[in-house]
Design a protein around this nucleic acid. Structure first.
Lengths: 208, 208
DNA sequence: ACCTGAACACCGTTCAAGT
DNA sequence: ACCTGAACACCGTTCAAGT
């Protein structure tokens, strides 16, 4: 009788701890891709990987921790994408445009995973682990390296501020459009960000 | 015995339907202010107003609908705040800066309510009701009226695009800072948005 | 050591039934 | 007509217990 159940209980050792972690993250990514953050649950992941829910809590400290790991993977993919885009353009100025287009494309192609980075909020009392924050910081270095060659008159603080302003601006266009907070068409995102980058850079180079 | 319970069951008619709706929204606002969207639940609201959970569902079609009503009230407050800020400044340019500061202040002073506007996502198959969308549209008219007098050379499409780009840009600075997605200090928000507006407008007026 | 069953304290939502 | 009790189908999280 009980042999008809897949397993009774107790040890299995089908997979190492690392394998289960990988299985969990991949399963979580698939659920989020299909149903978004609100469709994700520990129980759903457990079913997908064929383990009991409690197993999830032996590997991650809680759902927030698990989501942070998924988000870190998405950030790593985004970084590779942006880096690739930044490596094959002529002038710094067109390069910034190209990278912004690449960000916008990534957001559209990875809708739910991209969105989860921003939709997920950590409880007020916990802060981001360093391994996560460093993935974010890398992005800004990429942008700063594109702004620096624009003019010899820019000091480090100005370059940093320009990178931050443009990143936030392109992100603002993207997030408000993708989450339908404003009724912009997705096709308008690129022209808005071109308007942002072109006018901002003209102003920056004129004023310095 | 049963007289010790506040009420047994059945009709009460302590409040009209409109009063209960108001009580519900006010209770929801208070919970969100204190605990954020994740702390909000229909059961908690019901307890706060002294009714059964099911009552909530006789007044709102579901939690999403209720949240939309709270968000509409927040948007209305934001509109009044921005309008007030825009009415008392000298030049269009300083006025745009003043309004952006006002937006940033509002976000900080109404953290959780402001954040809920963006954190809450409607299910994919439902779209925003018209009465909600019109509250958003009013904001853009405000911004466009500040951009228009900047130059006679701007056509309507350019004014619209400038309003959208600047709104998205200031919002991007604000949301990424407030949600701690980037480790910016809240004090930096205003200087970043000034950098955005000043350089963008210089570029816009130079290029047209 | 690896893994699970079962519990605890919550959810959103519905609807037959009570006054 | 107004309002609720009780149910249904879910959650996240924990931990004693089974192999």
């Amino acid at each position: 009788m009980s042999k008809n159940k897949k397993r009774s209980s107790g040890r299995r050792s089908d997979h190492t701890r690392e394998e289960i972690q990988e299985l969990t993250l991949v399963a979580a990514e698939q659920i989020v891709e299909e149903e978004g953050l609100s469709g994700l649950s520990a129980r759903k992941i457990a079913t997908a990987i064929g383990y009991n829910v409690a197993m999830i809590y032996h590997i991650f400290s809680n759902l927030d921790d698990l989501i942070l790991h998924v988000n870190a993977r998405t950030l790593a993919k985004l970084y590779v994408t942006l880096q690739h885009a930044s490596s094959k353009c002529r002038s710094p100025r067109t390069c910034l445009i190209t990278v912004s287009h690449s960000y916008i494309d990534f957001a559209q192609e990875n809708r739910n995973l991209w969105n989860m980075i921003y939709e997920h909020v950590l409880p007020n009392d916990v802060s981001k682990p360093a391994w996560y924050q460093s993935k974010v910081d890398k992005m800004f270095i990429l942008i700063e390296e594109l702004i620096e060659p624009l003019s010899e008159n820019l000091n480090n603080r100005q370059i940093e501020q320009a990178a931050q302003t443009l990143w936030c601006g392109v992100h603002g266009i993207c997030i408000l459009t993708m989450t339908k907070k404003l009724d912009f068409d997705v096709k308008e995102m690129k022209s808005l960000s071109e308007s942002l980058i072109n006018n901002y850079l003209t102003g920056l180079l004129n004023n310095s």
